[in-house]
Design a protein around this nucleic acid. Structure first.
Lengths: 340, 340
DNA sequence: TTGTAAGCGTTATCAA
DNA sequence: TTGATAACGCTTACAA
């Protein structure tokens, strides 16, 4: 391995000078700088990243923890994060938090151990207390969670609000019997979406029975099975709100197989606006989440954190309803309850 | 920061002993070992990962380069890789190769600089020569490419063979006019799938006109547009082979909008077996690729590479046709050309 | 403008 | 069984 010492010898200077040239620090005469660059090139020198990081106690990289590389939109999130971070001259390294609070914590430690300049943590399961502790000791931004005690350190979507809007819209369209397939109920996202569903119905004094709600696992197959269960329970519904598009896709197939006309007999609403949603038959109404904007805000805030700047408050990120033909007018179309 | 020296002082030993305890190397009297462990716990000591890696010249982690976090199956690939690697006691770190050969190379260097024990490289654009050079100097496994000069260092799917099987199957079902929407034609995957399509038609002496083939971009929207173009060209086809499921989904919508009955008037075949494929209307015939098996083989081979073991030849990974009702019998159903 | 030398926090060799 | 001490390859005062 070619070290700085080799370069120094070749260029006839000391290590210190090579270091200065490498980092552009201090004053170096042009001729010696050229000599050093030449020596580097001739020897094919590559700085030892670990030694640099050890000496600096920084690694010029941003760490990102994701939840088991699944979830509806982590692809978009990773792509966007990578581009933004690379453009800033830093490197992105990604690691897995799997699906338990312990392993999420391990993942954060892994990145902290590598002296990431900042860490972006998409967390599902970590407790608020643990998060607050981490925030106090690490340059960390939390994604997908709202921490009332540290609002400037987290970005998240107004999931409940969006789900509320969905169901309220269905009610306006004349639906009063709205079923719901939730995501895994131990995740904050699924809970918030379910809460929005409940809120909308309760606000109109419509009954929410347990039979109308069933838990899915966010997968297409899970949505299919959940919908079959729902149907076999014999609960009547003219509209179905699925907590994500994948489950909506599975549910639509189950409905078709049960002989339901879509959307005439059952309207369906999804969540996440997956790329295929608009191309399904019928095109699926859903909620678009501004992932790019959210992750961008998180990264910008992380950079401020690194620089020690004061942290401005973050905007709220709200979903946008994409209305497509999977929703038809319901039986109360001529006399719908009005939005409050 | 608590260092080894602090622990040593607290336990009344030297840092050499602390290091021995930490790594389980050498002989340490049980009482002193306990004392050291206690000191570590009391001080909340965490070893400095960078210092360890620098001293060891290894980092106990496996690096993975992916292509811009997209492509049909990188989610499954990442999830599986993470699980396997974590189970082996190592850590996975992921980085982005974006979509150019230069940046793929940079990504590899990034991981090599961090002294990853091994690197898994999913590459689309790097030249074979560059790959061979890298293989010679790094503990690297190549994913998604076949290198005749280093077959034991790469895992890949028999994409052409699978595409051939698809189109041959369509012919057996009585189709003779088969159109094709390809992926981005500069990627090896799209090329191989297109080659399989051509091969099947040519083997039956069926005409492959340029008009039957159109390039897509692997997206749903791209498949939709490509199919519209295909239709506007006025080429007749009774079956459509899309190079991936996403494009097939878009194409199906374009076909429906053009008034085609699916599958009666046009049969559609996709590729990748996305989770939703079986739940579309009509359920989409497609090709399942054993991603888990492939990445597992790559990782096992990487571990052998690390240990310096001899590398056994790797099995071929072949796709499996998932026949669903998006394919109907074609006009030559009573007298199809037979499979060769 | 450049060089010397002391860190950074480990590991590992060699004596004791 | 332990402890000094020299690496590992870099950065950065401090001197020159």
């Amino acid at each position: 391995m070619i070290t700085m010492l080799d370069v120094a010898a070749r260029a006839g200077v000391s290590k210190a000078t090579v270091s200065r040239v490498l980092n552009g620090t201090g004053q170096v005469r042009k001729t010696t700088r050229d000599a050093v660059f030449n020596a580097m090139k001739e020897l094919g020198y590559r700085p030892n990243f670990l030694a640099q990081s050890l000496a600096n106690n920084r690694s010029n990289s941003i760490g990102l923890v994701v939840s088991n590389f699944d979830g509806p939109y982590f692809g978009r999130l990773l792509r966007r994060a990578a581009t933004l971070i690379e453009a800033s001259g830093k490197h992105l390294i990604v690691t897995n938090g799997y699906d338990t609070p312990e392993r999420e914590l391990e993942a954060v430690r892994l990145l902290a151990d590598r002296r990431c300049d900042a860490i972006l943590l998409y967390t599902r399961f970590m407790s608020e207390d643990t998060l607050m502790t981490l925030l106090a000791e690490l340059p960390l931004m939390v994604i997908n969670r709202y921490l009332p005690r540290a609002p400037e350190r987290c970005v998240y979507f107004e999931q409940q609000q969006a789900a509320f809007s969905v169901v309220d819209y269905l009610i306006q369209q004349g639906h009063q019997q709205v079923a719901c397939i939730t995501g895994p109920i131990n995740t904050p996202t699924a809970q918030a979406r379910l809460a929005g569903y409940r809120q909308a119905l309760q606000q109109q004094r419509l009954l929410v029975t347990d039979a109308q709600v069933i838990a899915g696992d966010n997968s297409v197959a899970g949505g299919y099975l959940a919908c079959q269960h729902l149907l076999s329970r014999g609960v009547a519904f003219t509209a179905l709100f699925a907590s994500n598009d994948d489950m909506a896709i599975g549910a639509m197939q189950a409905l078709r197989q049960a002989g339901k006309q879509l959307p005439e007999q059952v309207s369906v609403f999804g969540f996440d606006d997956e790329p295929c949603a608009a191309y399904l038959q019928p095109p699926l109404s859903t909620v678009y989440l501004p992932i790019d904007a959210m992750i961008e805000a998180a990264i910008m805030q992380a950079f401020r954190l690194i620089k020690g700047e004061v942290l401005p408050p973050l905007p709220a990120f709200i979903g946008e309803l994409k209305l497509r033909s999977s929703v038809a007018a319901g039986p109360y179309r001529d006399n719908p309850l009005q939005s409050l």
